[in-house]
Design a binder for these strands. Structure first.
Length: 833
RNA sequence: GCCGAAGUGGCGGAACAGGCAGACGCGCACGACUCAAAAUCGUGUUCCGUGAGGAGUGAGGGUUCGAUUCCCUCCUUCGGCACCA
């Protein structure tokens, strides 16, 4: 009998339909089983499923399937992150409504997702642009607002003067920072926008206690938040020329606050630098300096922080004509503006200590400002500020610092540095400063001047200010009858009636917020909507929450390390403090996959023409082969360039499995050794594959199965087919293969008359005894070089092994007695002469 | 500049906890089958050397009987941040 042909085109849709019809992958609360919530990052419905989606999702699916076979009640949902810029830009170009386009794309992508044969529970699908979903996105906004975590403030944004709109960061192109649409250079503009106070949680976000996340992600988040310890110091500032009084502690309304990590160097502050955007600049600038200051401000406004930050840039700046009083010594120091001070970090103003800061040093030398060293290396001659060649930054003792002289200075930050501790104590006693922690992390800017996003459910009334839309009026839905104008103005703003409403307080005429929310807001809680997308009494059913949360395993790309993952953690913690969620973290375990590059080793992109289309691969090889190859061809967390030849190997493996399992069984008369060797290989493989699944080592899962298959071919040659050991091998092999290649495993399982479905079977148990070796080959080293090998019984004594080893390497011993012989059981004998 | 990850055959990669480097696969070579080719099957495939043997996991050093694995210095590539006060 010739083997049946392997026809994935028939087998795969057949099982996909049956699984669907049987609800095989429905996950429901079952208190009798431990739960496992496996989550993979949801796609943006761009139109077609990319090979990158497959690379992210199929190993995650395989592991979810493995967990299910291990006895867990597994939830593995899928949905769409459906709001966002591309759909809106396409609408402006083509006139097709984003909702129409997005829904079309989702229909197509759903079909493509189904072709993967993943165990998604489609009853739990969520789509973030549907009103049933964004109703709750709005609701969450209101909860955060009510908790005092949402606020409005003026914030500089990139603005295109020609299109008359703000631009997202990805819409600003090139080194000259021009508008994506009309190529006009962008400028910065202050707009009043909504923020979430994420910085309130900065310290807590720095703690990763109790979560198993990659070190890499933890480092990225830690660096992103960038906590630094120091002090704020208050300087009295002269903005009505000549009214400075050094003897008085400045009143809050007549002072400027600086943040410094080196308050111990305060005596060396010889000038002050403000960011050009600092609000006090206009007040302190004297008439004589006004022209120069205005010119400098205009020039700085055209640049981004990043351009301004270009490392080796020559220092520039302008004197304002204003002065400040150094609170420690009453010195009158000039105030400059310079673009190396950023409004977005600290307080936008610094005290400049040129003797001990490289940037301040360069600035002082260029503009001939005084340099006063305030500490020096112990026992060395005191440096002269006029002739110093570089800022001094190491351990030492304080000098030129009044009663602080002699205090030790080291390079530690914060109170670990005795000089800093002493200065902070003194500042706090004087009321001219206090210990402070500063973060690079900023509050989360929520507002987008765009149509295709969740509306911000706020209403503005002339008399009652901002108020949230009442709950019973949620969701605020997007109007459909809008015009797409290439002016860049949000259609919500242009709509004749949409923004007109009544004030929830007084019932008088009021206007809606026409900005929409950042789409990261949608993705900060989608894992909660999956729990019960049908639920309408709240964002999720608490019963489902109690059973499934937290997410046990979250998988996705590293590119979300600082944005999405940080927002989600913040969101969860904020909700926790409102009693909406429980526990400190939303996701217990995180794993990141790498990227599939094009065959040219470059990032895949349409313009490069190196995109690999999964649909074509499925048509040619079947989903099982594509899945197997994606798991096999690279270390998952690393990724690798695509290899269109390489997939042939996985295709061969799948076909060879098919051939072996459907081919005529030749009954033979195998020796007991052959059968024992077969069992040994089966259980050794099972042991490895189990470990590999636990540790996300997908590539070696497939290679172990390939090895076992090769071994089974040999065993069959030797007559093993038909034995009970052979049957066991088939059974265990298929169970191990099922998470990787679910269709062929199901088909062959049925072929053997085993009970449907293989995907509800349990994961096999390792027979440790069967996995043991009878004989062991040891390498024998002489002075670190492998010279011979010996094969001994597994239970051979150490003395016996040593004697055997010395016998075979006699000719390498040069007649000497070995100084030392080390026997490492099961592996090596090391002889030292 | 700072922080992080990674460097192993022609290629992707393997090596559980410091113990035989190169599993598995691609590619390539040779052979079988075929009129021929594809597919399939078999054999070989780190480098140098006919050989015995020698070298070898980015480079150099160290610890150790023994290092891809641990430590130090350096180089390269990739990612993040970047005048962060």
């Amino acid at each position: 009998m010739a083997p049946k042909a392997y026809t994935p085109k028939e087998i795969e849709p057949k099982w996909q339909e049956k699984w669907e019809a049987d609800g095989l992958y429905h996950s429901d609360i079952d208190e009798s089983k431990p739960k496992h919530y496996a989550l993979t990052m949801l796609p943006y419905p761009s139109g077609d499923l990319h090979i990158g989606h497959w690379y992210a999702m199929t190993p995650s699916d395989a592991r979810a399937r493995y967990m299910r076979m291990k006895g867990y009640n597994v939830l593995f949902p899928m949905g769409f992150d459906a709001f966002g810029l591309p759909a809106e830009n396409a609408a402006i170009k083509s006139g097709i409504h984003p909702m129409v386009r997005t829904r079309d794309n989702i229909v197509r992508m759903r079909k493509q997702l189904r072709s993967m044969g993943a165990m998604f529970d489609w009853r739990r699908e969520m789509v973030s642009c549907e009103p049933e979903y964004y109703k709750w996105t709005e609701w969450f906004f209101i909860q955060l607002y009510k908790k005092g975590l949402a606020y409005r403030k003026l914030s500089p944004v990139d603005f295109c003067p020609k299109c008359n709109t703000t631009l997202a960061r990805e819409q600003v192109w090139g080194d000259d920072r021009h508008c994506e649409r009309c190529s006009t250079p962008v400028i910065k503009k202050d707009l009043s926008q909504w923020f979430f106070q994420a910085t309130k949680y900065a310290d807590e976000l720095l703690s990763f206690e109790g979560i198993d996340w990659p070190e890499r992600v933890k480092t990225l988040q830690t660096n992103w938040i960038d906590r630094s310890e120091g002090a704020e110091v208050y300087f009295k500032v002269d903005w009505e020329n000549g009214k400075l009084d050094a003897s008085k502690v400045p009143e809050p309304d007549s002072r400027v606050t600086v943040f410094t990590t080196r308050p111990d160097t305060l005596f060396g502050a010889t000038f002050m630098v403000f960011s050009p955007e600092h609000p006090l600049v206009d007040k302190i600038t004297t008439a004589a300096q006004k022209e120069a200051v205005e010119a400098y401000k205009a020039q700085a406004a055209r640049q981004s922080d990043i351009q301004r930050g270009a490392v080796d840039k020559e220092k520039t700046g302008v004197f304002t004509g204003g002065y400040a009083i150094n609170p420690v010594n009453g010195a009158k120091i000039p105030i400059w503006i310079a673009d190396y001070v950023l409004m977005s970090y600290g307080t936008g103003a610094i005290m400049a200590v040129p003797a001990h800061d490289e940037r301040d040093f360069a600035f002082a030398r260029k503009f001939e400002l005084p340099i006063i060293p305030v500490f020096q290396a112990e026992g060395s001659p005191t440096p002269d500020g006029a002739t110093m060649e570089a800022a001094f930054i190491s351990d030492g003792v304080m000098i030129n610092s009044g009663h602080f002289n002699g205090t030790k200075v080291n390079t530690e930050k914060g109170r670990k540095n005795p000089a800093i501790a002493a200065m902070i104590d003194w500042l706090e006693k004087q009321g001219t400063g206090k210990e402070t922690v500063n973060y690079r992390y900023r509050d989360w800017l929520i507002s987008r001047q765009r149509y295709w996003g969740s509306p911000i459910p706020m209403i503005y009334c002339e008399t009652h200010g901002w108020n949230p839309v009442p709950d019973d009026q949620l969701p605020v839905t997007l109007p459909e009858d809008v015009e797409w104008k290439p002016t860049g103005e949000s259609p919500l703003k242009l709509h004749p009636t949409w923004s007109k409403t009544t004030c929830p307080v007084c019932g008088g005429p009021a206007t809606r917020e026409t900005d929409t929310m950042d789409t990261f807001m949608c993705s900060s809680w989608y894992h909660l909507r999956y729990l019960s997308p049908w639920y309408d009494q709240g964002p999720f059913d608490p019963a489902e929450y109690d059973y499934w949360m937290p997410v046990d395993t979250y998988t996705g790309g590293i590119e979300h390390a600082t944005m999405h993952l940080l927002y989600t953690r913040f969101f969860h913690k904020a909700l926790r403090d409102m009693g909406i969620t429980q526990g400190n973290e939303p996701m217990t375990q995180l794993r990141n996959q790498g990227m599939v590059l094009g065959e040219d080793n470059e990032k895949m992109s349409k313009s490069r023409g190196n995109v690999v289309a999964p649909d074509l691969l499925v048509a040619r090889y079947g989903a099982d082969t594509v899945r197997a190859y994606l798991m096999f061809f690279a270390r998952w967390e690393m990724g690798a360039p695509w290899d269109s030849q390489g997939i042939e190997g996985s295709a061969r493996w799948v076909r060879r499995t098919w051939t072996l399992f459907t081919d005529e069984v030749k009954n033979g008369s195998p020796t007991p050794e052959i059968l024992r060797a077969l069992r040994r290989k089966v259980h050794q493989t099972l042991k490895r594959v189990t470990r590999n699944f636990e540790q996300f080592e997908f590539n070696t899962i497939v290679s172990s199965l390939m090895e076992l298959l090769n071994e089974m071919y040999k065993a069959r040659e030797n007559g093993a087919a038909g034995s009970k050991e052979w049957s066991e091998a088939i059974d265990i092999y298929l169970r191990m293969m099922a998470p990787v290649a679910p269709h062929i495993a199901e088909e062959l399982w049925a072929e053997y008359g085993k009970p449907y479905s293989i995907h509800t079977q349990s994961w096999p148990k390792v027979d440790e005894e069967a996995a043991q070796e009878d004989e062991i080959t040891l390498a024998v080293q002489v002075n670190g070089k492998v010279r011979e090998r010996i094969t001994v019984a597994a239970d051979a004594s150490e003395d016996f092994i040593q004697a055997e080893a010395l016998k075979v390497v006699e000719r390498y011993l040069e007649g000497k007695t070995p100084k030392k012989v080390i026997v490492v059981k099961k592996s090596i004998v090391s002889v030292v002469i």
